[in-house]
């Protein structure tokens, strides 16, 4: 996730060409034009349209767009929708914590303890699930978690009581953590790989226990990786639709499901859906701003 800026446009050997001055602006334009146009047409403009729709109370397809107030936003502050947002937030935080707790040891082991020549292979093996469709992975969890599914058949062998978690919040958390764990591991790996082992040796020489040196050296040194990984997982799980929709039940409505329902689901209120979308966009933008602030500073401070 280190976003080093692309090297400035260096004309290099082209300096000998007579009209090199022209190249100075042709280069950046040629490079930035297509993605810029792409962003404006497919991101900025649609966002503005969503914003406009969010200002039309209760608009549905076929209605005249006539922005006239913040009713859609005040609707969000009804307690039932605040609860939906809180639930989404808790799912995202929960997923982040689970991914961090499960992902850190894995990343630590791959980066520092595994045989060097196996490292890349291990990493690839870990992110391999990302190559299959996320829809498919959620369906796999359905067949594992459902009452007559794989998990309960397995528990039955050992005479353990059956677990009934499908269509409830824990199932959503399981599915989301499973889906986003690889992102966490990848980012933590790239951060832990750079860990200065000499500091750990020095700490051990000076009498620090492994636990002390973990908290005083490993964690601070990989803090940026932890922050970047956590924020990334937080952002994607906040907007996740598939896991809550497939693994959740009647009582695990999240913001993304609610937005879907306003546009393509049983209720059609594009205005309310748009205001919910705007709130999500702001929340994610804030998280991205944090990500850039804490996840991207060069490691000079350590």
């Amino acid at each position: 996730m280190t976003q080093t800026a692309p090297p400035p446009n260096t004309p290099g050997s082209l300096d000998s060409v007579p009209n090199a001055a022209k190249k100075h602006w042709v280069g950046p334009w040629a490079l930035l034009g297509p993605p810029g146009l792409w962003l404006v047409l497919l991101l900025v403009l649609p966002t503005l349209v969503i914003f406009e729709l969010s200002l039309v109370p209760g608009i549905r397809p076929g209605d005249l767009v006539n922005p006239s107030g913040l009713d859609n936003y005040t609707q969000i502050f009804e307690s039932v929708y605040l609860r939906v947002m809180l639930r989404s937030l808790l799912f995202a935080i929960g997923t982040t914590v689970v991914s961090l707790v499960l992902g850190f040891p894995v990343a630590y082991w791959i980066a520092l303890m595994s045989p060097k020549r196996w490292r890349n292979l291990l990493l690839v093996a870990f992110i391999l699930p990302l190559w299959t469709s996320s829809l498919l992975r959620s369906y796999a969890w359905i067949s594992i978690l459902r009452p007559t599914g794989v998990l309960n058949s397995f528990l039955g062998i050992f005479n353990l009581p059956a677990l009934d978690i499908l269509n409830q919040s824990p199932a959503v958390l399981v599915g989301m953590s499973y889906s986003f764990l690889p992102y966490m591991v990848l980012i933590l790996y790239s951060s832990l790989e750079k860990l200065d082992l000499k500091l750990l040796e020095a700490a051990a020489d000076l009498g620090a226990t492994p636990i002390q040196s973990f908290w005083k050296i490993t964690v601070p040194q990989s803090f940026q990786g932890i922050a970047a990984g956590s924020l990334l997982v937080f952002i994607i799980s906040l907007g996740d639709f598939i896991n809550p929709e497939l693994l959740g039940g009647a009582s695990s409505m999240t913001v993304s499901r609610l937005i879907y329902n306003q546009f393509l689901g049983p209720t059609q209120n594009w205005g309310f859906g748009s205001s919910l979308s705007m709130i999500m966009i702001f929340a994610v933008s804030a998280a991205v701003a944090l990500l850039i602030r804490y996840g991207n500073t060069s490691s000079g401070k350590v």
Binding site: V80, Y81, V84, N261, Q268, F272
Partner: peptide, 14 residues
């Protein structure tokens, strides 16, 4: 219709 949908949103969101 709007009333039905409002209740439906509340029902499925709660």
């Amino acid at each position: 219709t709007a009333l039905y949908e409002r209740y439906w949103n509340q029902l499925t969101s709660g």
